[in-house]
Design a protein around this nucleic acid. Sequence first.
DNA 1: TAGTGGTCTAGACCACGAC
DNA 2: TCGTGGTCTAGACCACTAT
Lengths: 255, 255
Amino acid sequence: MARRQQTLRQIEDRKKPSSILGHEPLYKRAKRELTRRIASGEWRPNQMIPSEMELAAELEISQGTVRKALDEMTNDNLLVRLQGRGTFVSSFDDEKMLFQFFRIVPDEGSKTFPDSTQIALTHGLSDKDEVCKFGLKNPEEMWRLERGRSLVEAPIMLERLSLRVSRFPGLDEIAELPNNVYGLYAERFGVTVVRAAEQLKAVSAGKTEARHLNCKLGDPLLRVSRLAYDLDDQVVEWRVSLCLTNTVHYAASIR
Amino acid sequence: MARRQQTLRQIEDRKKPSSILGHEPLYKRAKRELTRRIASGEWRPNQMIPSEMELAAELEISQGTVRKALDEMTNDNLLVRLQGRGTFVSSFDDEKMLFQFFRIVPDEGSKTFPDSTQIALTHGLSDKDEVCKFGLKNPEEMWRLERGRSLVEAPIMLERLSLRVSRFPGLDEIAELPNNVYGLYAERFGVTVVRAAEQLKAVSAGKTEARHLNCKLGDPLLRVSRLAYDLDDQVVEWRVSLCLTNTVHYAASIR
DNA sequence: TAGTGGTCTAGACCACGAC
DNA sequence: TCGTGGTCTAGACCACTAT
């Protein structure tokens, strides 16, 4: 055995020529290669990818090793596997993906689809916070999108998004930004958001928030600051949401 | 092959005698059996369990199938596997486990260990909310624990815990409840908390909260309502925490 | 019926830790 | 050196989907 596992091994050898320890498993290398194909757009969302046997032959590793890579990617929400049908790249524009990142749920009743109203889209040099959040070496041009969101006709959220202009060129030419911007990021800019880190605080409503959310000055609001990461673990979006939580809550689960 | 995989198959056959479909994989049955041994106390936290080969021999399945069960349990935080040493039942009293469920972090600086101050431990018949949260068929006697928590000397949280007296008999005989009650649940009552669901809202501080948290009336507070589940997916604790988030935040991650 | 993913087995070799 | 978990292989059979 191990007759012709040259390809992936050679990649490894080039990457870490002098490391004696730190041997990266074959299935991890396979996972990286397959992930790269999604990130590069070679494989598009909803597309069926080659079968286990085909990938095994192409990468010159065994089917079991391919399976381990595919299983991990399925676990990371990058792939969906359907018995009898095939393996597909996750879509980032369906309901499931929206709710994956939209954690606001009504206290009573089931999950509901939020509406969005764009307030402003501006751009300018990154401020101190943006430099910090995005880990920028030098200040650069940023988009800033403000929008309101409502659930069942009632305004509940005020959002401010920051994006790097360099990663989203021509964003202002798009007539109307959709409700689910992550679908837009994927389809128009090839940016795939796969995970996010959020920081939650309770704050008081100021004048702007009170006006947009139709609440009183000083009312308690849930402030959610989110950093969204792409396939390469780069920050692609910083989003601050201010949310009225009279009839809704933020749902989190701990495993 | 498949010469003597009698034991686990017979268990399955007894459970679902007439179901033609719904065949449960062997590794799932193995996982259930191994989980049962932890839940029943047969295997205690920090204890090393038999090796893959021994389990495979005992359960009369292959090593690979045992491995798949163990891998899933490792993923569920039930087991810790150490190459060269063995497989161990997770401890629920170390720092890692505390921080797994303690999501409050300072805005600046690293994670810090909170202190707890017990305010009151009372008991009484379950109220409407408790009946609902615990899914009780009939009202029953409940413990109610109130305590304050502080980070670096500063009071930041006020907590109220509800527990079923039937699952925690003699809780009031314990001189001082520890900071990490989940360790206590495990060691003294054989109750292992493995996951939790939390609902977050922003609320205004009332008189009681203002006094305990040393803040003003009406100040915004983060309200965290948590249901904690055990190995059998039963609700074992309902906890409401009110938290001052001036210098700390609640950290969540979305994958 | 053909092709896919899902399960299960059996055995090889490697990396690591304890002795 | 031995026993452990980690990786990798090769191949069998099952369950499901499409045709």
